[in-house]
Design a protein around this nucleic acid. Structure first.
Lengths: 334, 334
DNA sequence: CTGAAAGCGCTTACAG
DNA sequence: CTGAAAGCGCTTACAG
């Protein structure tokens, strides 16, 4: 068992109050000699204050909870990494959990996190499996921020999806495309819906109608993107360009088009979303939309941990995206 | 502020001991009527026992710490996900941290984790930036497991890297290759070193010597794989096959070969490692070695949490790999 | 400058 | 079956 404050006090021949004061290192006045004795005892016993007990007395667990659909999908750990970076700098640590989009699991997780009295709680993802207890914020005992999901009740940090979708639409239209397929994400995904909305607005502005059969679900996986693309290309009037709501689905699309003997971008142009590290290393290199998942995390934590006390009202932030033109869209034909 | 046990006791008109007993739901005998009153009060006040306080009295934080180089590299979250799955099932939660391979950051993280009195600590990754305090295990106050790193002091869970490297070597040799380049990972990476060792053993057994200029560092990234491959192909006697220590580097290699007008597998055969989801969707589909990162995590946690008390001595587990033959190695030529 | 004491929110022998 | 009390390992007014 690790040494306790009492062990150190006994070793140094002082009271626990004194040990507490030197161990926590504030500017409380301590006699030089006393301090030396205590420090020596701390060193000797390798004393490390019990953070759990500290959290209890200070009524601050210094824990931030992160809840995401699935930490094995790279987007979520990257957001979490952003959270960790600012939380860590302020002496907080992150407790992260996956829900697998299962409401029962999500609710058990929320319970566990709330039981641990997390000082802040970040919910990542646009799904609706996570339901916070319907109590006023004060009774929850924690600050909440939603990343990528719309709500009035809590602060939110979101991607400029509509605008990004609009930009992709305009780009493809400018390249002469009129029939453009959309590979959507997970059912109920806010991000996918918003990207589609912006994309359609661009089409509408250009006076081109978007047919329902030009939208297929890909579920954010390579396999889903592959299948969706095949379905798209088997439509009565197959698209000349495809916009996939994620790079992973775009990779599936690339494979599907290759397998159908279709060249990218010559026969079909392709645009992804996320700008994952390997997007640049695909051949053709993938045109995509860059969004900093890490930044979503840092912004979210700043919202929660910056305030001295709870902010008067929920704040809502949007993080901008940047379209990255590479080869797969055909803009760089030469 | 959330309700405390005292609030519930007052509401129900019973002692806190009674509330504790019904709230924790054991089989301690409680009068039916009393129980009903307490349950009603819990419900009314939305009482949720404070897990921090509980941890303190029970001397078990029910927290497991996970420390990895960088949670934004997908391998680590996947291992962590495995840890989370078995930990969660036993009522534990995971506290995860990234070290960025920085010793100072690593040591601060260890301190913080130990201060939180994590019941178990998993260190992922073969780097050497993480140094546990040099005290006997008991003084550490936590169980430790290393994932992917060799040590006698703690339990370990590791991948059968040597054997996997050997298998890849044999496969490539059987396909007629004699000059095979190796794209190594991060400097000091045990995994990369072991894979190379097994690979070289296969070459040696076949009587072919492996030249030093046929090994290049790729640092586990696409960009590193790209550059390493270019260097490899500019050797005096360029290899006819390349074995990359990770799929991400293999993707970089694929791009480099394409950019050099070299066809895969016709001009150069390629094998990766990891079997990431998109390996199957590359064209040519990537031959690689499948290793379940998730499984590494579950095995590690089982080692820690299964035992009633500390195991007599550290245990050492190896997780098997499976070679997945696809197109990039040329075995499926037709 | 130092310490005794109360308290954070629980659990758990011990009595009754 | 129920409760008063001690204790988990700290912090922090309050006295001196």
């Amino acid at each position: 068992m690790p040494a306790t404050i009492r062990d150190v006090a006994a070793e140094a021949g002082v009271s626990v109050a004194t040990v507490s004061r030197v161990a926590s290192g504030g500017d409380y006045p301590i006699g030089a000699e006393t301090k030396a004795k205590v420090l020596a005892a701390i060193e000797k016993l390798n004393y490390r204050p019990n953070g759990i007990a500290k959290g209890l007395t200070q009524r601050n667990s210094r824990l931030v909870g992160v809840i995401a659909p699935d930490m094995s999908n790279p987007y979520y750990p990257e957001v979490t990494r952003g959270i960790e970076d600012v939380a860590g700098a302020k002496g907080y640590q992150v407790l992260s959990c996956s829900t697998d989009r299962d409401p029962a699991r999500a609710s058990a997780t929320i319970d566990a996190l709330l039981a641990k009295r997390v000082a802040a709680l970040a919910v990542i993802g646009g799904g609706d499996e996570v339901v916070l207890p319907d109590r006023d914020l004060d009774a929850l005992g924690t600050e909440v921020v939603m990343i990528g999901r719309a709500t009035r009740r809590f602060s939110t940090v979101r991607v400029e999806n509509v605008q990004a979708g609009h930009e992709v639409g305009r780009h493809l239209i400018a390249l002469g495309h009129r029939r453009i397929g959309y590979v959507a994400g997970h059912p109920g995904s806010t991000a996918s819906d918003e990207r589609l909305r912006g994309f359609r607005r661009a089409l509408k502005e250009a006076g081109v109608e978007h047919r329902p059969e030009h939208v297929e679900r890909g579920g954010y996986t390579e396999a889903g993107g592959y299948d969706a693309t095949r379905r798209l290309m088997h439509a009565a009037a197959p698209p000349s360009a495809i916009f996939a709501a994620s790079d992973r689905m775009a990779i599936g699309a690339l494979a599907a088009l290759r397998d159908m003997q279709l060249r990218v971008p010559d026969d079909v142009a392709l645009v992804g979303f996320d700008d994952i590290p390997m997007a640049e290393y695909l051949r053709p290199a993938l045109t995509t939309v860059s969004v900093s998942a890490h930044r979503l995390g840092t912004e979210a934590m700043r919202l929660l941990l910056d305030g001295s006390g709870r902010p008067a009202r929920p704040q809502h932030l949007r993080v901008r995206t940047r379209m990255v033109i590479r080869e797969s869209c055909g803009a760089r034909r030469n």
